[in-house]
């Protein structure tokens, strides 16, 4: 069971970050873990070593911070894991594109939509937007926006 393997690996690596289990299945993940910016590369390496693949990277824009959400999965039933990382609006998280090759494009997408730079990713040209786009449409300061909350409004 790879999920057990990664569970112990993550607990060893990040003893301060508790694993938040989800029994309802709403979040789609077995458990989630919050890691600091400096820990994402270590986390990704552990997932790579445990035979997981990177399903998606996405970001959430809050008034006080960005939140990057990484979904990892492996080819065994119900093994999805969410890794969360808070990242200030002016912080630059490290890339994981040398660990998971799919991260290259996913980070490009996050970069063009949110303006989050990834240090170490050389190729951050816009992927879906025009090549000269200098705006970040999914930020809550762009265009028509329903609401712009602080993170605690949603996650308590």
């Amino acid at each position: 069971m790879r999920i057990k393997d990664i569970e112990s690996r993550m607990q060893n690596k990040f003893p301060d970050s508790p694993l938040k289990g989800d029994d309802t299945g709403v979040t789609g993940a077995k458990w989630s873990i919050s890691v600091p910016i400096s820990g994402i590369r270590d986390a990704a390496m552990e997932f790579d070593a445990a035979g997981f693949f990177l399903e998606s990277i996405t970001a959430l824009d809050f008034q006080d911070t960005f939140e990057l959400v990484y979904h990892f999965n492996c080819y065994e039933p119900g093994s999805r894991v969410t890794v969360r990382m808070l990242c200030g609006h002016d912080q630059v998280p490290p890339t994981i594109c040398d660990i998971f090759r799919s991260a290259g494009w996913l980070e490009r997408e996050v970069h063009e939509f949110f303006g989050i730079k990834f240090s170490g990713n050389e190729d951050l040209r816009p992927l879906l937007l025009p090549e000269d786009a200098d705006y970040h449409p999914l930020r809550k300061t762009f265009g028509r926006v329903g609401a712009y909350h602080k993170r605690e409004v949603i996650y308590g």
Partner: peptide, 25 residues
């Protein structure tokens, strides 16, 4: 209600998923 959902399903081309975050609105 407030919270998030990540639902995967098998589309014709592979694993597809919707990630929705609700703020109660």
């Amino acid at each position: 209600p407030k919270g998030e959902v990540y639902t995967a399903f098998e589309s014709a081309r592979g694993l597809t998923a919707y990630y929705l975050v609700s703020d109660g609105s």
